[in-house]
Write a protein that binds this DNA or RNA. Sequence first.
DNA 1: CGTTGTCAAATGAATATTCATTCAATAGGC
DNA 2: GCCTATTGAATGAATATTCATTTGACAACG
Lengths: 189, 189
Amino acid sequence: MVTRDPDAKRRQLVQAALAEFAAHGIAGARIDRIAKAANCSAGLVYTYFGSKDDLFSAAFDSLIETVLEEAPITPDDLPEYAGKLFDGYEDHPEVARFLTWHRLESDPDRAPNAAAIASTADKIAAIEDAQRRGVLPEHLVPAELLGMILQISAVWTAATPEFGEAVAQYTRADRRRVVTDAVAALIRP
Amino acid sequence: MVTRDPDAKRRQLVQAALAEFAAHGIAGARIDRIAKAANCSAGLVYTYFGSKDDLFSAAFDSLIETVLEEAPITPDDLPEYAGKLFDGYEDHPEVARFLTWHRLESDPDRAPNAAAIASTADKIAAIEDAQRRGVLPEHLVPAELLGMILQISAVWTAATPEFGEAVAQYTRADRRRVVTDAVAALIRP
DNA sequence: CGTTGTCAAATGAATATTCATTCAATAGGC
DNA sequence: GCCTATTGAATGAATATTCATTTGACAACG
């Protein structure tokens, strides 16, 4: 028999929710599908999470935790940092989709994720430090540079189908080089 | 009394649909709200468009038509082109939202928008031509450069709430300069 | 001029389904 | 036996879609 394990069930539900929300967003997600994917009833979702929105929020927090662990910033080699972000998007396309749904759909009154804010502040500080050490040009504003790197890394995930036609034959290595080259150009002294 | 004017009513419905879909996406949009905003009954939407998905598609086509007319590419001054795109996003934030919903939600089996594909090809050709005339460095691949410019222009619309905290005090002029400077750095010989 | 026939535009009230959420009842492990 | 996890069957509110009917414009006709 299956032995009961509430923590494992909770994790299963979060995993299933991540996949469902990444695919369909909040409005398009179906609690039934999430429950079925986690091998339980829809009712159990409410025992654990209370509501669809709360489940989305829990899934988001879990995703942030995972994402922040991978891809630590390497301020001495920002092109490679962007490349690592690119790798993350390629290997886990559902992450970018989920984050996009989050930006579009989540309740703006909800408190923003504290870990994400702290991590952003850390990255900006790391860039400032690299400037002080002379490995990055002084004229760049750290927060702006960081924002630009994040955006550039996602250039291929954000491409429209219409644009995709123009680059259909690109290999993954090609796409990665486009990202790292762009960041290299940005930080050229 | 209100005189009947089917073309005007159709345009009203498309306008209302654009606003509703930009705000809530396909799954979150409500036909009732669209009909009310266009001063007609929900049934009329089906007389004109047949289904929610078809209405979304019609709204998308209309948006593309509008967007392509504004912001013609200026290959001799790409930083300013990016600035113009930035202006468009700032003045019409619903456009970026709508396009994002489109990327996430629209049926991949639907035929891509031919005008958008043609326009992309035109822009790439314009960049190639500028390279031939010597106003742009040869080492850049036109399609890649175009994709990068489009992505960079949208850097602020794609910023997460968490990142937004780091740049809350930025003025619009600041944000625009970040965009144009980045494109200038990209095309530096 | 009025009357009337015709057709498209438009309505509003069903229809029928989908879905989040609740809850009383059951089962598992200690 | 007791506590918690879990179920599965309601519930009830939305909501997309259909359709029989009404309304408005317009032109043919007397």
